[in-house]
Structure formats: C-alpha cells, structure tokens
Design a protein around this nucleic acid. Structure first.
Lengths: 212, 212
DNA sequence: TTATACACTGTATATAATTACAGTAATATT
DNA sequence: AATATTACTGTAATTATATACAGTGTATAA
C-alpha cells in the first residue's frame, strides 16, 4: 500500500495544522494524547509516514517533525501554503524620489512586499509604486506596485524602471538604431530624449482595488 | 537601555536565521555552542529579549522560541518575511469553464496562488485568470490573475466576476434603476443583458510580464 | 551612590522527549 | 500460505532540554 490510510491521512493533517497554529511541530506525546493512543503507536506511525515521504524527521531532536511538499489530497491547502511559503521572497518597496541619495539606499525603503518568487525571472528584485498615467496604454496605472528585476540594460520595447532627473519613472525603452530614449505608453506624452539610467526591467505587478 | 545591544541583536538574528534554515528554533545549548558561552548566559539573554519583546518563548517546551514582528533594524527582511508569511493565504485558482459542474468544485481548481492577505478586504477569496480583452479600459488584460472576494451581490460600478452561460467572466456590474446587467470595459463590446450570477468582487490582481 | 541591566561561569535538577525492546492482532500484499 | 504492513499496548532507558540557584564583574541609568 503506497498511499495513505485514513488514519495516516488524519495524522498528517493533524501535524500540519499543529505546525501552522503553533509554529513548531508536536511531540510524539502530544500527538498520542490527541488521538488517545500510546506514544509508540505514534512513533511507529510517524516512521511509516517518513518512509512514504509525507513527512520528514530530524533524528534525535525535540519537535523535529518536518513537512514535505507531498499533498495528502487534491485540495490540500496546507501543503500548498507550505510550498508557497518556502518560495516566498520579501522585496523592498523604494520611494520614487532620490533627493541626492542613491535610490536603492536603505532609508529610501518605504516598505516591503512579499511575493512568490517568479518562476521565469531570476536576479535581484525590488518594487516601486507607479505614479501618473504615462503607462496606461500598457495597462499600468497609478498605484500599481511593480515587480522589477534590477539591471542596467534593456532591449528595445521592454518596460523599464529608470532614473530620470532624480526621479524614478516607468517607461518603454526604445533603441532602434540611434540613441536610446524613453517612450511613454500614452499619446498625451512625448518621447523623452534626456539622459536616464535604467534601474530594472518590469517583470510583474500587483494591484489592489480596495486600497484607499 | 530599551534598545538592543550589539550582542542581543546578533542573538536575535542568529535565532531568526536558524529558524529560517532549520524550520525549528534552536535550543539554549545550540545557541550557547554557537556563541561559545555557557548555556545560562543564553538563558538569561533570552529572558532579556523576551522582556524587550523581540522574541517570545513558550515556557517548558523544547525549542519553544518564537519570533515576534519587532524588527531588529530598519532593513530587517527576516522579520518582514516572517510577518508576511504569517499573513499569507493560499487561494484556489479556478478554471473559467463550468462544464455542468459548479465552478467552485474542487476538481475545477487549476492551481493555487499565495498572497498577502489584503488589509482592506475580508471574506473568502479566490482567483481566476482573465480571458479576452473586454476589460482593457479598466486596465485589466488577458492572463491577469484576479483576486476575487466571494459574494453574490454587488453595487453599481463594481468590477465583478460572474457566471454567464456556464462561463466565468469579468465585467462591470451595472444597476441604475432597471434590471442589473454586465458592462464590458471596452467599447467594441455591447452590454450584456442575459441572466448571470455574481461570483465575487474583484479586489486585486497580479500580472506576470515574464509568463510564456 | 545605589539600583538595574548586561554578560557571563559553574553546578545541579527536573522534566520533556526520543528511542528501544518485547509483545499482540488485524489486514493487505505477493 | 507466507510475508509485510498497519495499528496498537506496555515498560524502560537514555538523551535532550529547560530551568533553578549561587555566584562574579562591568556598564549604565536614576
């Protein structure tokens, strides 16, 4: 029998919930008391679950039960949450005005946002809040929080976050032959041919419709 | 002295990293060995940190050190990540075609997305992927993943996810006097006056520019 | 200057927790 | 039919871990 028995499934779910609620795994005794069985029934049941790959155990230490990514059933949100949490990253949200100081200075951090690590994008990420309506044609609007991969080069047509006159701005990067320039995605604005510095490439965004 | 001393700050950071790496808190002994001091130096130091509110301790149990949300320094991503993880929720991403079955059926779950719990929105959330261009004027485009609060009523002008002809659709809810109807946010489409069922209100969205 | 917090050592103890050994019985698998 | 797995009880041993008590010395705050 490779799959879980009903009792085993209940045991795994109890452990998952316990860890979620308490922040640490239960002891054999605590589990045994919950199911009102002998400690060694649990000891052996845990061994079986480890063998099947549903949990892991650090030998010898107290509260050493660890969860694996193996889901118990299809709608197993505990496991999914666990997996997602393991892939979460916290990235700084920078303010958009660099008053002399470098934009990536620690005291320009306005907060943090925590997201699942993008699958198709590596490298250092940061976030900025969109100001103005210069990117509406690309469906990027005021207050959107952009997920940006830090880099100082870009290809033609990519949406970049750039430093322009000491301010952070989002534009389309253009480079067809001549000097590179920044193109707003809104025909009410003209292309910008002033010097700028690329801070990164936009790889994602989050929007909150309920924000005040 | 209300703030952390250098030694205390190092201690807190050690504990945070330990928990992050190992998934369980260190024992006094493990900490003492790391700093090559006596166990009771740690015991007392932990008590001081608990008193200052930087960590919490479950009395009597093994590996019972818990982190609090108090950041050690401004750029304290461990604390932020910890705080964020505590507020993470995993919500199901439903497919958009209900072939006879109810849309919220478990086997219509295409995956999960994990997000920080929206501050201004309570209730049960779910997610759907946007199809088509009927909402471009509201800056919502194909492949955007909508964060939706499950409810079956809406106010005039709210962006709703609704079930229409057994398919999930995103539209603006309209109800000015007469019968409610669904309004696309794209002038190439006409208002829809057919019967529909509101599944929820759009409270947020995420977009991945790197997706294939 | 007196009290309080910090930063420790050293010894000891109680309990928390894991692990081992020896069984029994039912069920599932080969 | 033989074997392995599940699902337990019961006793015991060992180690892991937290906590208590008695100190020492330094720095800091009232």
């Amino acid at each position: 029998m490779k799959e879980l028995t009903k009792k085993q499934a209940k045991l795994v779910e109890f452990i998952k919930k316990f860890i979620l609620v308490n922040g640490h795994s239960p002891t054999y005794k605590e589990i045994a008391e919950h199911f009102t069985v002998n400690i060694n029934a649990i000891q052996q049941a845990i061994a079986a679950l480890v063998k099947k790959g549903y949990i892991e155990k650090v030998q010898g230490i107290a509260r050493g039960i660890k969860l694996t990514e193996k889901p118990v059933r299809k709608d197993d949100r505990f496991t999914e949450l666990q997996r997602a949490k393991a892939n979460m990253i916290t990235i700084p949200l920078y303010g958009s005005v660099a008053a002399g100081e470098p934009i990536f200075a620690d005291n320009n951090i306005e907060g943090y946002i925590t997201i699942e690590k993008p699958r198709h994008s590596s490298g250092e990420l940061f976030s900025v809040t969109v100001r103005g309506d210069s990117m509406v044609d690309k469906k990027i609007v005021e207050k959107d929080k952009l997920i940006v991969r830090k880099q100082n080069t870009a290809s033609d047509g990519e949406i970049v976050v750039a430093l322009l006159d000491d301010e952070v701005t989002v534009k389309v990067f253009k480079k067809n032959g001549g000097l590179p320039y920044l193109q707003p995605a809104n025909n009410r604005y003209d292309p910008i041919h002033k010097p700028f510095k690329i801070l990164g490439i936009v790889v994602g965004l989050t929007r909150d419709f309920t924000a005040v």
